[in-house]
Design a protein around this nucleic acid. Structure first.
Length: 201
DNA sequence: AATCTATCCAACCGCAGGTGA
DNA sequence: ATCACCTGCGGTTGGATAGAT
């Protein structure tokens, strides 16, 4: 499995203040220790009731934050990186059908999170559409498609995208991501086993 | 080597819907 | 019917990193 966790902090980094240390809500990147606590708690007690999870586990995080961390990162079936060509095609087709219903789209892609798909769409597909749109405008072909780079206009265009995906994927140059500087979620498992729960997923 | 720019993506926020009192 | 709380979703932010200059 490719479930991994980055060692280095990413995303919003809210400096942990003295106040936060003293009991208020913590924000920003999760530490490995927090991941470990949450991971073990959920393995022992199950998912759901996120506010209870946040309180009972002793994490100074909101229930929302715990839920997000679990769903997007710690869940054992999360697949990371390397969105395959087939997955890309599926995303394009589903987006054409469902629009920005990322969670619905994610349900069709086992192991992929709505956040990951959303990020993928925004950073890869939308940009590709923008680039190809500009290219068509430059070459005088924009009149037939009425292109736009917004989501509103992207669904119809996505159908074209799907149709021309075979060619596109050669130029997409997407997804080959490095997994260096990651730690594995599996790294957390042995300790969990030591805690006496052998029902590993 | 230093600086600038573009890209990635984890995590936040606000809102809406569901549920129970 | 109303209120409060919880959960889930979609949009956005901004720090880290890679690549270009």
């Amino acid at each position: 499995m490719e479930t991994t966790m980055k060692k280095k902090g990413r995303g919003k980094a809210t400096i942990t203040s003295q106040k936060e240390e003293e009991g208020t809500v913590r924000k920003g990147p999760w530490t490995m220790e927090e991941d470990f606590i949450l991971f073990n708690y959920i393995l022992n007690h199950g998912e759901g009731l996120w506010n209870s999870v946040a309180k009972a586990s002793g994490l100074k995080r909101t229930g929302k934050s715990c839920r997000l961390r679990w769903l997007n990162y710690l869940r054992p079936d999360v697949r990371r990186g390397n969105i395959t060509a087939e997955e890309q095609l599926l995303i394009i087709q589903l987006h054409a059908k469902l629009g920005n219903r990322w969670s619905k789209i994610a349900k069709h892609l086992p192991g992929r999170t709505d956040n990951e798909i959303k990020n993928f769409w925004r950073t890869k597909i939308q940009r590709h559409m923008k680039v190809s749109s500009e290219h068509m405008i430059c070459s005088g072909n924009s009149q037939s498609s009425g292109m736009t780079t917004t989501d509103q206009g992207s669904s119809g265009k996505a159908i074209d995208m799907a149709e021309s995906f075979s060619q596109a994927k050669t130029t997409f140059n997407v997804v080959e991501q490095s997994n260096e500087n990651y730690w594995n979620v599996e790294d957390l498992w042995p300790v969990h086993l030591l805690n006496g729960d052998h029902h590993v997923i």
